[in-house]
Design a protein around this nucleic acid. Structure first.
Lengths: 339, 339
DNA sequence: TTGAAAGCGCTAACAT
DNA sequence: ATGTTAGCGCTTTCAA
């Protein structure tokens, strides 16, 4: 099982190592008969290229760094899955770094990955501002695609869901099902998911009710905040709670049920992202599904293009999401199945 | 920003590249003054070692492959997080491969990672039997630690939770809170989580009730199965459903609530793993928490030992889990908070 | 303690 | 179409 090298394959197939390299890497035309012999010998010996050597010579490792804030954020596993599949399909391997929501750790991981000579980076920044320096520096060295969250304008290519369009879908759905006293339960901060969803609500809610754009409470993207928010807004008896993500929606749902409120009879609850939990809660949470597979595919495609030398203008790709209607926003008058 | 090499540092600090290498890698004693100059020059130039070259020369990449069945399995993100942190703390990078529960894809990923010269592998096998060949072959080439699931006896070192001890904790807790008509909702198959939990129930449930060990229904590890299982067993009015994992428990809980059953008043429900959803459902699911951080730490330690040359006998490390009591198993007579 | 020199396995000029 | 040769950046003998 000792490592088989090009030299061994060359000896076995009776030609030079350069020829073998050309056959196996497919860089240059090679005689059909020679190619066959080489391939046979390689297979017989169980030849496996040494990526380290290849990387040293060709200055490309076939490796992409994936840097994210927290793999335990319930939206990310699906994204990671699709990204790794898309990249593996292109023959690239994925070096994973989890930053624990810490921009300092993020900067270190990025530097380490660069030292390991990743060909490119996929980054979900931990913080809109404090991630910027490290991301910008890295983007100057290798192709870099930002995902899910932004990192200031003009820093790098980016691929994300169109948060505004998603929020518009929610508002439209609520309008169509007769909700008017709508209230937004959002998140503070400049992270794009927070800011864009907030902005889209403010821009679109006026169509339902003149007072709606002003009915906004802000916290963070957590179940706890969802629970707490209900205590702030329930006294006013809104007929719909538009939550900035599914975790908030699940928290809100729980607290409402605890308070004896009828969801969706009295009040609808909507989320955003379509994490697995959204489908499993009772009632299921109406939400906006991010096109995860397509986001991953776009990111992989963009990366491949940049690696192929495309130096075109910076790109910001936004994909339209899809509304997933579940029981939490069924029409008001719907009778609940008795327990 | 062009790459700074050892040669550049050598020139800047006025000594040979060999000396610089020795200072930076700390392999051999070097004069204090020289060392200082070298370090200064390296810092000033922003030197970053080229891992590809280092790997080629020293036959170690500082990289570990992490191969798992499905990152979207809700138990894995936390494990991946702890594993990457533990390995990064040792200066290693993690190449991630998601196999989509397909042993063939798993074999390919393992072969690719070996070609990329990972120093070691961490594998959560997709299948007890069909993963064996690839895992055994890999284990012959590099240190390999199996996690979470087994892969046949004697294949490689392994680190996992003690499933039997966890199930014993659950049964003990149910006994102490007066449950007797206990029923097990498990999963078919030979994967260790399924088999060991099943076995431990069969072994321990007799202490509660002579008929308990026989009250077993088997499906898979899914919410859907949890729901379906209730329809099979509820007619007999068990006072506790011991589920083989949290997903099953959540499904069972939902179906019971739909049927109007009082949980925990009439029937307790318990899970296993303590995935995030277990805490978020209403009522919260009593479950067995896997010591994820410690599992990761043990795996990293074992790997480091093997990489350091330890050729001791194969090790199977089992860590004791912890019972997390939530509302789903509160004592029968407890009054429910009125809505 | 330090330097010179020989490669690790591979690819890419340059020859032929 | 194929072979020869020169390194990629680093570590590690072997000398000094």
């Amino acid at each position: 099982m000792a490592d088989v090298t090009l030299k061994d394959v060359a000896r076995a197939s009776g030609c030079s190592i350069a020829t073998v390299s050309r056959v196996l890497a497919g860089t240059r035309p090679v005689g059909a008969e020679t190619a066959r012999r080489v391939r046979e010998a390689a297979a017989a010996l169980g030849y496996r290229p040494n990526h380290a050597a290849r990387a040293l010579r060709s200055r490309a490792t076939g490796t992409v760094g994936l840097v994210l804030p927290q793999i335990t954020n319930p939206f990310y596993p699906a994204l990671v899955r699709e990204l790794t599949h898309a990249l593996h399909a292109d023959g690239r391997a994925v070096l994973l770094a989890d930053c624990d929501d810490d921009p300092a750790a993020e900067a270190e991981h990025i530097a380490d990955l660069l030292g390991r000579r990743v060909d490119a980076l996929l980054v979900i920044p931990a913080d809109e501002e404090r991630s910027r320096a490290a991301v910008a520096a890295a983007a100057a060295r290798v192709p870099l695609v930002l995902m899910d969250r932004g990192c200031g304008p003009g820093v790098a290519d980016s691929v994300a869901v169109d948060n505004g369009a998603g929020m518009a879908l929610v508002l439209e759905h609520l309008a169509a099902t007769g909700r008017r006293a709508v209230c937004f339960v959002g998140a503070e901060g400049t992270v794009s998911a927070a800011a864009e969803r907030r902005g889209a609500y403010a821009a679109g809610a006026g169509a339902l009710d003149p007072g709606a754009p002003g009915r906004v409470v802000l916290g963070d993207f957590s179940v706890e905040w969802g629970r707490a928010a209900v205590d702030q807004v329930w006294a006013a008896r809104p007929d719909a709670l538009v939550c900035a993500n599914d975790l908030i929606a699940i928290g809100a749902l729980q607290r409402l049920q605890q308070l004896g409120a009828d969801v969706p009879g009295e009040v609808a609850v909507t989320g955003f992202d379509d994490i697995p939990m959204a489908a499993l809660s009772a009632p299921g949470v109406t939400t906006v599904r991010q096109p995860v597979a397509q986001l991953a595919a776009e990111a992989a495609r963009l990366l491949a293009q940049r690696l192929a030398g495309d130096a075109g203008p910076q790109r910001a790709i936004r994909l339209a999401p899809e509304l997933v209607v579940r029981e939490s926003s069924a029409p008001k008058r719907a009778a609940r199945t008795p327990a």
